[in-house]
Design a protein around this nucleic acid. Sequence first.
DNA 1: AAAATAAATAGTAATCATTACTGTTTAGTT
DNA 2: AACTAAACAGTAATGATTACTATTTATTTT
Lengths: 123, 123
Amino acid sequence: MRYSKQRELVHASIMSSKDHPTADRIFSEVKKEIPKISFGTVYRNLGQLVEHGFIRIIQLDGITHYDGNVDPHNHFICNECNRIYDFELDNEDFISQVEVKNHHHVSGYQLMVTGTCNKCNIN
Amino acid sequence: MRYSKQRELVHASIMSSKDHPTADRIFSEVKKEIPKISFGTVYRNLGQLVEHGFIRIIQLDGITHYDGNVDPHNHFICNECNRIYDFELDNEDFISQVEVKNHHHVSGYQLMVTGTCNKCNIN
DNA sequence: AAAATAAATAGTAATCATTACTGTTTAGTT
DNA sequence: AACTAAACAGTAATGATTACTATTTATTTT
Ligand SMILES: [Mn+2]
Ligand SMILES: [Mn+2]
Ligand SMILES: [Zn+2]
Ligand SMILES: [Zn+2]
């Protein structure tokens, strides 16, 4: 993977966002630095960064968000402010449930919890 | 919601499938009975059936699947045969974890477990 | 039973996110 | 400095879904 300024900025944009930005958002962000950058470049680099394990994707209502946190974790989506929060689980009890009750072999999972976040919840 | 043969068949197609078909698959299925049916009709009726709670949707890799089972349950996707299985959980431990550790209010969740299903797992 | 009304339809055009293509530029190598 | 392949900008194409429109049809009203 040869160096390119555009990939560096795409990556930096995701890492600094803490949010879980879409390709669209990343494009706008990087465009400030490189006004001539094109969508194709953003998508190509996002694909490569995912492929090399620098970032990961999460799907939300059919659109793709990018996540700079590649450690295993889950997401909470506030349906008031639409922010996406990370959270971790102590024990993934449901994995063993699926394995013993359904006799499937589990290799991964994706959990998406929705509700009202603590910031929106001050009442 | 006025009766229509096309909606009846769209609904019947989902209910009889046990699989979790896409709009595309439902279209092909209903087309056998009503060759002149259009995609617009399929999508419009799917939307209405969801709206009225007769079916629900699940997103998988950005494409929408339809589910005739509206009781709360989760999904296991086999990455060998690509079948989508239903399963239920005994206690949703992670809900309380999110509520007490992150102080969010949980209203729902979506869990997607991946791996190798019991049928593909006979080795 | 005929007329009226509004919902649903078929067919097609438009949208939106994403991917593919193409000729040009550029990072890294010889 | 010359070379080469990767990456680029720009643009066209794709695929799933939604929107539009003139026509048909289920249901209500006369
Ligand atoms: Mn995350
Ligand atoms: Mn299901
Ligand atoms: Zn919130
Ligand atoms: Zn399988």
